[in-house]
Design a protein around this nucleic acid. Structure first.
Lengths: 209, 209
DNA sequence: TTTTCTTCTTAACCAAGATTAAGTTTTTTG
DNA sequence: CAAAAAACTTAATCTTGGTTAAGAAGAAAA
């Protein structure tokens, strides 16, 4: 009886922790419960406090990272010490330096927590095993990469063709929940302007009304 | 005897036409000859003359496009009529509007030929069949998408953090063969400056020496 | 609570890159 | 080959956005 309760508890905790990832997989492919359990057996879980680092420039990314609560960000620091944000990762998103992940070479990105955050990690080597054991997972990550690719294509075009104010408006439209939470400074580092200029821009826009 | 010659001829032509694509696949996964033949049976071939369009803004991308000779480019045109180049595709590269390809909705990109170009086309619906028949192909396209993703991440960081002159130098280092062939105007549209400014910049750099 | 750190704002000045325009060279096409 | 169309250059002027600096306001930490 006690064992039964403990088993249920374990399942329940696992469901809490890994539910979001399994749901995300289920959205694109269907896998058996045995497959799910196999995958879960290779996952690890981690908490990251606000402002704590997950990766620094020069680290080799040996894990795929999936956010289940809170929010991470990836960014580079240029030679003048300014941050340029590549991506925010709210719950349900993956984050990482693909170049480093693929080639297993030192990355150029920093990743830290915008907020207290919980993540799921998969080791790159385990991911290879998952592909071998459950070929359908190749499809899941193909679809994931293709979607991310579409997002980056769009963002690059925006950066090439739109003035700062429109890039800001696009950001607010695309990530309304982030706009509320993030300090302005970080939105500026994402759209590619200085915090001073963003402030000036918003002041002007407000004055017009 | 005649039939034998014709068969060989057909194989030879097919090798000429589809060789680069099959090689590219073989670099990442190994498939049987039967699989190769199946894939080839779903491919089509097309020549595109310099300056001819393959897609325009608003078109739905129903094919994946692989370049075997020449060079294509994808770009958007902003409200002032200026071109912003997302990608060049020399031989061995894929090109397309991922957003449009995935969601089968009108795209925002133009694709035309920088030079007389030969391409291989795969219909999106046939691609689904290929995935079903040869699951390994999911891996091939996963790897492809992941590599492209890494490239876009890098380019976006560069655009956010580097001044125009360094973006130009990066372009020359990364695509030396393109730098020779392309009109300066198009390099400008890729790195995100006006042709006038690129000209001024290069004049200054030359004067220094 | 008080102190400290971070963020936000404002403003004056500065610089990278855009715009306009005109002339020159190169490439394409009839 | 001549004519037309692109592409390249140069220069003057303008604009977007950066830099510097300093104070105000919030948030975090002690």
């Amino acid at each position: 009886m006690l064992i039964f309760v403990l088993l249920n508890l374990k399942l329940y905790l696992s469901e809490m922790t890994y539910g979001l990832l399994l749901q995300s997989i289920a959205k694109h492919i269907s896998i058996t419960e045995a497959d799910e359990q196999y995958i879960v057996s290779l996952l690890s879980y981690k908490k990251i406090k606000r402002k704590q680092f997950l990766f620094r420039e020069g680290d080799v990314h040996k894990h795929a990272v999936f956010v289940t609560s809170g929010c991470l960000r990836s960014y580079s620091i240029d030679k003048n010490g300014f941050e340029h944000i590549l991506q925010f990762a709210p719950p349900g998103w993956w984050i990482g330096d693909m170049q480093s992940m693929i080639k297993q070479e030192p990355g150029m990105l920093y990743i830290d927590a915008v907020d207290d955050t919980e993540i799921i990690l998969i080791q790159k080597t385990d991911l290879q095993d998952i592909y071998a054991a459950i070929p359908k997972m190749e499809r899941f990550f193909r679809i994931l990469a293709e979607n991310a690719l579409a997002t980056y294509q769009h963002r690059l075009i925006d950066n090439l063709s739109l003035p700062a104010i429109e890039r800001y408006q696009n950001f607010c439209r695309q990530y309304p929940s982030l706009t509320e939470i993030l300090p302005q400074k970080q939105v500026a580092a994402y759209i590619g302007v200085t915090p001073e200029f963003l402030s000036k821009m918003l002041g002007k826009a407000a004055a017009k009304k």
